[in-house]
Design a protein around this nucleic acid. Sequence first.
DNA 1: TGAGGCTTTTTGATCGATCAAATCCGTAAC
DNA 2: GTTACGGATTTGATCGATCAAAAAGCCTCA
Lengths: 339, 339
Amino acid sequence: MNPELRTSRPTLMSLAGELGVSRQTISNVINNPEIVKPETRDRVLAAIAASGYRPSAVGRALRTQRSLSIALRLYPAVDGVNGAIMDRFVHSLAVSAQYKGYRISLFAADSADDEVEVIDALHRASSIDVAVLTDTHTGDARPAGLIAARVPFVAFGRPWGADGSSHCWVDVDGSAGTESATRSLRAGGHTRVGFLGWPAGSGVGDDRRAGWARAVSDLPGSSELDLGVEDGAQPGAEAAAELLARGATALVCSSDSLALGALTVCRGLRADGRLPLVGFDDTPVARALGLSSVHQPVELAAERLIGMVDDILDGRTPPEPQQLLTPELVLRDLAPFAQ
Amino acid sequence: MNPELRTSRPTLMSLAGELGVSRQTISNVINNPEIVKPETRDRVLAAIAASGYRPSAVGRALRTQRSLSIALRLYPAVDGVNGAIMDRFVHSLAVSAQYKGYRISLFAADSADDEVEVIDALHRASSIDVAVLTDTHTGDARPAGLIAARVPFVAFGRPWGADGSSHCWVDVDGSAGTESATRSLRAGGHTRVGFLGWPAGSGVGDDRRAGWARAVSDLPGSSELDLGVEDGAQPGAEAAAELLARGATALVCSSDSLALGALTVCRGLRADGRLPLVGFDDTPVARALGLSSVHQPVELAAERLIGMVDDILDGRTPPEPQQLLTPELVLRDLAPFAQ
DNA sequence: TGAGGCTTTTTGATCGATCAAATCCGTAAC
DNA sequence: GTTACGGATTTGATCGATCAAAAAGCCTCA
């Protein structure tokens, strides 16, 4: 290790020596100001400000047995337009965490099992107090794994298919988003609204499909206007063409990737500048092209998750351990250059 | 704080007691295995494995004065197609850091000054050992600020306009990327290759422009085929139209955002499936659309930066404190749906 | 004068590791 | 048979904070 870098920072002891008070008094000024005599407090605060003293997070963590760090797995950049939603989430989480005095500690993993293993290892090493799971899916083994390892955690995403009350989570109601998108298209006069989604079986995908289905349940023949394909622009374009051939005049998609693909095919459907096409996730591409999309309130989700973390670590039971947030439909006119 | 969560993890002391050896012996097995008698070592290793013991990162950090944490500022998700490059970088950094035993600690900031302040505070609190700067630009005050605060750091990006040897950095040679893109278009027969970039003045933008300029310096009249506009698809489309009007038959762009805008305008220039149009950053959108682009080796950059961090913290002088990496041109045929 | 009850401050112990130095032990040399 | 040596292991001190409890200071009142 490099000794040159060991800039001798002030410590409770060094500050106490200079000030002629005990270390505990300074500690109290920081953690329990109300029990210190006002004059003493002011004198100490001035000295703290002058010296630039900051309590060592390490010393504190050792004594209190709290690292105030939150583990978050970073997935490899996905090969598609989506994933941008995760950027926003990670940033929001960093902001909320910082605000409440926590730090986000990143890690990478090769698989779900590996993820649990890494989290467990970080936790056993007291590097982190708690983990945040993202991208929950049907048959997700991570919650059970973490419970077995006794690592506290919260999830961004419902425990699809499993018991929803076994742990804390926040999720966005995707079906509300697609339902709102579908009804908006119907309000525009469309009676043949198709759904361009993923193959049945994924929790998120089925949920988004369900919202569309609710909104078209009174329209006969709608079940033919439902296609499930792999995510991506090319599959989206092909499936969109098929849906139009079956008579659809408007489309709701499970992702902006699919919508991007559908864009070209749907150009003919344009009324005014707006396309009867709605994507999902409100990614930068959708904004750039002027594509309508469903916007997830990830900032809010992050804030709620950090609130739960705070409750858990302080020994409180989160008042609302499971929260479903409502997304917002963003309607846009196609960008001039894309028309 | 919640006492229920204090699962009493094994410690050096508890393990030592059960095994009948001293704590230091176990410590040695972990940190200096070669000085421990093989039989003892095996016995200790078995006990470590059985108990699931992991050295407390906190205890270790307190003693060694090294947190093994690296600060990284997370920018708000930018409103554009770009920024995706940062995703890849952050992920790569997490991977490389983890591999070398470091952790990435995220934080958010409102401004450059705030960023320096937060980093300094984290450093004074011993939460981090070192910081990684990204998005360096002309007139960047952060390096000087961190040097003044005596916080070690490395940068992803050159110190544009400033002394390049004052600190460690890794950057990608943007001009080599645009030059290669331009030469590739010329090899395809084009003699009127335009450059669609940003207004002069930004280090990154001027560098990318310079690469194009080098590659067309022998073609008279090329200087008219250079436009600088704000980043974005709409400005890109408008500027592309103007360049074509001036006689350009091929375009090299400073970003995939600009290229996305140019895409529509350039459709007529297509020869076979490939467009004489090259973007920059190789973002997911470019891949989705089948747009040629310049790919930055961010994984390598991250690896090199972590290597430098490792050198700095261990008191070594990095053998190559400033590194310029070469990007790679990725040529693609337009996706069928986008044609 | 000094005992009692506050408020305010200080002292001792502890969290879990590593460094540095001391001790232990078996073997070889004189 | 004692000394010296080198490998293996153990002991004491320390990193920087907080908790818990003791001590000190101050005012009141008998």
